[in-house]
Design a binder for these strands. Structure first.
Lengths: 147, 147
DNA sequence: CTAATATCAGGACAACTGATATAT
DNA sequence: CATATATCAGTTTTCCTGATATTA
């Protein structure tokens, strides 16, 4: 076996494992990544808005790697639930600036998301601090594969 | 901030990153994990059958972490395409033992999957050998979160 | 005029749940 | 009778593509 073939085999083995775990991840992330009834996609948006203050639908779509139409549906659900609100951008009439409602911001600051975050709970319960560090370092590598 | 709170914060930050990358992964894995027209879920089954020889639908469903009904649909597609074949288990009338067809086994041995595997290609192209090792070591940690 | 934002409408996909027939 | 395998049928979720109005 040539060195090139060995490298290909290594990549192939890794691909197989990613497929297997990725498949599971895809299915389970829906259940474990939510907070109560709220899906992980909505949580991600709230956390983004909490740290950034405000953003447009297109901003959020880019940040999460999806289409504006898809993000629009997520935002519509969050608006209907009274968690985010939009106001027109005074500087650009095309844009709608989204931000957390006061009630939602207070709810998040009270740490209720953190305490109910099943994914964070699973991480804390099942991974040692060292393992968490190891996983955190590897995530950007995974991100590079899907960008 | 107590040590406990610091640990919780670390887990929360990791959870946020997994949500973001996991979301992307979920969406992009469909495109990049396939081999040509074949979806990643089918590839995973073929690789499993290649290494194990034969298996039932329920075996495969358990291995991939999904329901037998869902695996049934994947198998039906592979059978229709002539890639796998089933025969009744002589020892247990409930079971159907699935295996690769000769033609599919030959196709896989010829390395055509490996050369057309976009995910393996992305890994080889975008990650150094060291990074591949690092990612490989972290995948079991991710698996532990979703089991 | 071209590009970006947002939204409407319809569609595809991959998993799910529930129910059923058969065999152990 | 309780359990396991396989399959039929219908539903849900999530994101997709295409088309359109508006504004920069």
């Amino acid at each position: 076996m040539t060195e090139q073939e060995e490298r290909d085999d290594a990549a192939q083995a890794l691909a197989t494992e990613i497929r297997r775990i990725g498949g599971r991840l895809k299915r389970r992330l829906r259940e474990i990544s939510g907070v109560g009834d709220m899906p992980g996609s909505q949580i991600a948006v709230l956390l983004h808005l909490e740290s950034e203050g405000q953003a447009t639908i297109s901003d959020l779509a880019r940040a999460e790697g999806m289409r504006p139409q898809s993000m629009g549906a997520i935002i519509a659900a969050l608006e209907a639930a009274g968690h985010v609100q939009g106001r027109p951008d005074p500087a650009d009439g095309r844009r709608t600036l989204l931000s957390l409602t006061e009630r939602c911001a207070a709810w998040m600051q009270a740490g209720r998301i953190a305490r109910q975050d099943m994914l964070a709970g699973a991480i804390a319960a099942r991974l040692s601090p060292e393992e968490q560090t190891q996983l955190g370092a590897a995530l950007p590598l995974l991100a590079r594969l899907v960008e």
